[in-house]
């Protein structure tokens, strides 16, 4: 088997280097496939990710356009609830996969490290379970799970801070912020739980006006986006922004946060439209980010052939979808804000 791309092929007309001299010790295996080869795979993945993201943006925009202006408030609230549910799921899914991987990297040397993926998994299950069967009891159970998720996230935050503080130099050393337990990550679980709770509130009888609801969720989302963006920025800075596309998550989402905040402050038609586009872009950023990270893993030394190292040492594939979740939450918040923007 010869795993060379065209360009490498031209340079190495024979594939002999991949054939192992027969030996009594082991059987031949292609080893370090050139890490520079197969850029095409990466490009295809990147393109697919971008296409998927684009598709979602278009759909969001379309739905917006098709929405009959006079739709009943009830169903608008239900729509927002669905968005919140999705946001909660995406965030929980992201935390589930990411914490499972990162804690695997940490060797699960503390039992407590299993709690994060477990609670993220529970949150994920709660937020994806069918809304149709939403009995009162189920709803309470779900709220309980979300609250437990939030508590886990907050505890995780504490643990991560403690982890940083006990390393040499503690909080005075950038090394610890770069490489010790990330501060922001558990926050995503808190956010996931909050959106789950919000989704639950939205299918029940309103306790405040929709605008108030929209403002609450919208400002929370703007803050979440900024925090997540800060985390991405820190880690991309750690990697020296070696690829210009790494600036994307520190530009697009904060712009969305600002737009969202503006819409919260003055929920006019125009502003909501802009914020909607910005939140759509944040969704796209999250999805494209995952694709870019897949490509990034491939570009690590040994590529996917060396997956056991590179999935952990390379860019975290599961992290960027958090942005997608936050983008959806933003869209949901805008749904709510829009209701009162109607005449």
């Amino acid at each position: 088997m010869c795993l060379l791309t065209d360009s490498a092929m031209k340079n190495a007309p024979d594939c002999r280097r991949f054939t192992c001299a027969p030996s009594s010790i082991g059987s031949p295996a292609p080893s370090d496939r050139g890490t520079e080869t197969g850029l095409t795979t990466g490009r295809v993945l990147g393109a697919l990710g971008l296409a998927a993201a684009g598709f979602l943006v278009l759909r969001a925009a379309e739905r917006n356009r098709l929405q009959p202006q006079k739709q009943a408030d009830r169903s608008r609230r239900a729509d927002a609830a669905i968005q919140m549910g999705r946001a909660s799921s995406l965030l929980a899914g992201s935390v589930f996969a990411d914490s499972a991987m990162e804690h695997l990297r940490g060797g699960y040397h503390r039992r407590a490290m299993y709690v994060a993926p477990a609670m993220a998994g529970a949150t994920l299950a709660a937020s994806t379970s069918s809304r149709a069967r939403l009995s009162r009891r189920n709803a309470d159970l779900r709220d309980g799970i979300y609250l437990a998720g939030i508590a886990t996230g907050l505890t995780g935050l504490g643990f991560h801070l403690w982890n940083i503080s006990k390393r040499p130099g503690g909080a005075t050393r950038m090394n610890n912020f770069f490489y010790a337990a990330p501060i922001g990550a558990p926050g995503a679980l808190v956010a996931s739980g909050l959106y789950g709770l919000a989704a639950g509130r939205l299918v029940r009888a309103p306790q405040m006006t929709s605008r108030q609801e929209g403002r609450l969720v919208g400002s929370m989302t703007a803050l979440n986006i900024l925090a997540t963006s800060a985390e991405a920025g820190l880690l991309h800075f750690r990697s020296a922004f070696q690829n210009p596309v790494m600036f994307l998550p520190v530009i697009a989402p904060p712009a969305a946060a600002v737009a969202l905040a503006a819409a919260v402050a003055r929920p006019g038609r125009q502003m909501i439209k802009i914020a909607r586009a910005a939140c759509g872009t944040t969704v796209a950023t999250g999805l494209a980010g995952a694709a870019f990270h897949v490509w990034g893993v491939h570009r690590m030394h040994g590529g996917w052939h060396n997956w056991r190292q590179n999935l952990l040492a390379g860019p975290p594939i599961a992290a960027p979808p958090s942005f997608a979740g936050l983008g959806l939450a933003g869209l949901g918040a805008l749904d709510l804000l829009e209701m009162e923007a109607q005449p």
Binding site: T35, E36, R238, S239, A240, Q242, N243, G296, R299, M300, H301, G302, Q309, A313, G314
Partner: peptide, 12 residues
């Protein structure tokens, strides 16, 4: 390098 650089991959 602590991150990719051109054709040099991140240190393993």
């Amino acid at each position: 390098v602590s991150a990719r650089r051109g054709l040099s991959p991140h240190c393993v």
